[in-house]
Design a protein around this nucleic acid. Structure first.
Length: 231
DNA sequence: GCGACAG
DNA sequence: ATCTTGTCGC
C-alpha cells in the first residue's frame, strides 16, 4: 500500500483541476475490502452552514455500540474555504471535519459520513477521502445520488438494489424505512459494500437515517436537542 | 454540445 | 446546504 503522506487540505485551497488531479491520485489508495476490528464506538459526521454559507459547522457524534448511546459530541466552526462544487465536496468539508475529530474524546472503530464513499465519478467521495485521512473504516451514507443508476428498490425495510456506474457496482440504494425514498450506501474506506449495508441497517432506528448520521445531522444543522450523554 | 450534479 | 408551519398518513 502507498504510504506517501496525504496533501494537507487545511493549508491548501485547490483549484478544480488540481482537486480532480488529487482525487485521481488518491482513489487507488482506497480499500474496498474489510479491514475493520472489533466495533465498540461508532462515529457520525456531518457539516452544516451558517450566515449564508460563510461559516462552516462540522459536527461529529460518538456512539457506543451496541447501545447506540451518545458518548460524546463535538461542534467546530470556521470560515468556509471553498464553494460547493459537485464532485469536489470533500475539499469543502474535510478540513472542518478533521478539526472536530481531533477534539473527540476517543477514536471510533467505524465512521459513518453524510455523503458518498466510492459512489463518485472518480471513486473518491467525501467518506472515502476522510477515511484515508483518518485511516479508519468509513461508510458513505447519502440522501441522494451523485452518479450511477439503479433499478427499483424492494419495498421492505432493509431491501436494497445495487447502484452502478460505468459497468461497476459502486454502492447500493437501501430502503431504510418503508414507504420512504431510499438512501445510498457505499464503502468509504476499509469496509466492503456488504459490511457497510450490515452496519447501516444495524444502526437504524425507526427513521430514514442511521443513528450516527441522523444525530450528526441534527447537531450540524442546529435542530432538536441531543440525547443526554451517558456517563 | 446538452444535461446531471453528494452537501 | 438553507429559507420555513402546518399537515397528511402510518
Amino acid at each position: 500500500m502507498d504510504k506517501t503522506p496525504l496533501t494537507p487540505l487545511h493549508e491548501w485551497t485547490p483549484t478544480p483541476d488540481k482537486a480532480i488531479a488529487l482525487q485521481r491520485e488518491l482513489a487507488p489508495r482506497v480499500e474496498r475490502e474489510d479491514r475493520i476490528g472489533e466495533v465498540n464506538l461508532i462515529a457520525g459526521v456531518d457539516i452544516g452552514f451558517e450566515q449564508e454559507g460563510a461559516i462552516t459547522r462540522a459536527a461529529v457524534v460518538l456512539l457506543d455500540w451496541p447501545s447506540l448511546t451518545l458518548v460524546d459530541h463535538v461542534i467546530y466552526r470556521e470560515p468556509t474555504r471553498m464553494p460547493y462544487i459537485p464532485g469536489l465536496l470533500s475539499f469543502r468539508e474535510i478540513p472542518a471535519a478533521l478539526e472536530a475529530f481531533n477534539k473527540l474524546s476517543a477514536t471510533p472503530d467505524l465512521v459513518m459520513v453524510d455523503g458518498q464513499g466510492i459512489a463518485h465519478p472518480r471513486r473518491l467521495g467525501v467518506a472515502s477521502h476522510l477515511g484515508l485521512w483518518l485511516d479508519l473504516p468509513t461508510i458513505g451514507v447519502a440522501k441522494s445520488i451523485l452518479c450511477g443508476r439503479h433499478d427499483e428498490v424492494p419495498e421492505q425495510r432493509g431491501g436494497w438494489t445495487p447502484l452502478s456506474h460505468r459497468g461497476e457496482v459502486i454502492g447500493a440504494a437501501l430502503r431504510s424505512r418503508e414507504k420512504v425514498k431510499p438512501i445510498f450506501i457505499s464503502s468509504g474506506h476499509r469496509v466492503s459494500l456488504e459490511t457497510s449495508l450490515d452496519w447501516v441497517v444495524r444502526c437504524l432506528g425507526r427513521t430514514k437515517l442511521p443513528e450516527p448520521t441522523r444525530l450528526a445531522d441534527r447537531l450540524a444543522s442546529r435542530r432538536g436537542a441531543m440525547p443526554a450523554a451517558s456517563s
